[in-house]
Amino acid sequence: MLAFIWAEDQNHLIGQNGHLPWHLPSDLHYLKKTTLNTTIVMGYRTFRSFPNGALPQRKNIVLTHQTEKLQGQNVLVAQNKAEIERLIANDQQVFIFGGRSLFEMFLPEVGYLYVTKIAHTFVGDTWMIPIDYQQFTLIDQKKGIVDDNNTFKHEFLVYRRLTNTNTRKETLKLFQS
């Protein structure tokens, strides 16, 4: 399974100076629960946004040409899509964390979308890529709890691609031939 996972505001904003523009602990809990014991793929800026480095109990893959900066960080490094494909070839669950270029790179193959939609508008500098949701069907929807720690209305949505064209399995066959 190849999936995207991200949070966005009402205008599809996903970042500000390499960080999330909001504080929403329930989204971080959802991200952790959903991605434990899976493979996660991210760009260097996304990786740098993690305060403690590699996320534990996950296979962390970082797309970058700055390999020397990641020595000793407990991550696998890929310099291009083909290297990522090789590193995930035998993995059952793979989540693309971002940034934008990785979402663009894997959009044709992605089978699932895990998105946290926040009912608020923030200031930032990075927006999610356009996605044609007509190619996906909503398979799960859950409202997030608003409380003292989670002050913005939000919901967790999961979509599955409708067609099997360009699925990860087919794409992997292309890379392995």
Rank of each mutant, 00 (worst) to 15 (best):
A3E: 01
S177H: 13
W22M: 11
F97C: 08
N149D: 11
I61T: 08
F156H: 00
K59N: 14
T171K: 10
F50W: 15
L63V: 15
Q16R: 08
G53V: 08
T165R: 12
V146Q: 04
N74H: 15
D9G: 04
A7T: 01
Q135V: 02
G53C: 11
G124K: 09
R168A: 01
S101K: 14
T121W: 04
T64G: 06
L162F: 04
A78N: 08
F136G: 05
L36K: 13
G99W: 08
R48G: 02
F50Q: 15
A82Q: 15
T167W: 10
L172T: 06
Y159H: 03
I118W: 04
L162V: 10
M128Y: 01
F136I: 05
G18I: 06
L174C: 09
L162D: 07
Y30P: 02
D147F: 04
V77K: 00
F97K: 06
L36V: 14
R58H: 15
W127P: 00
I145R: 15
T38Y: 11
Q71C: 00
R168L: 13
N60G: 09
L107C: 09
I139C: 07
N37K: 15
K143N: 12
I5H: 00
D91Y: 12
V41S: 07
D148T: 08
M1S: 13
N164S: 10
N164E: 13
H19I: 03
G98W: 00
N90I: 08
T137H: 07
Y159E: 01
E68Q: 14
T34H: 07
F175L: 03
L63Q: 06
Q71S: 07
S26I: 12
D140Y: 10
S49H: 10
V123F: 10
L24N: 01
Y112N: 10
D140C: 00
A82I: 11
N52I: 08
P56S: 15
D132R: 09
P130C: 07
Q92D: 14
A89W: 11
N150W: 04
F50R: 10
N11R: 10
F97T: 01
A3D: 06
A54R: 12
Y44L: 14
V41A: 07
G111H: 03
G18S: 07
N17T: 14
P51I: 10
N74Y: 04
H19A: 12
G144E: 06
P51F: 07
R160I: 10
Y159G: 05
E155P: 01
K143D: 09
E104M: 11
H120E: 11
P25Q: 08
T67Y: 14
T151Q: 12
A78R: 03
L172E: 05
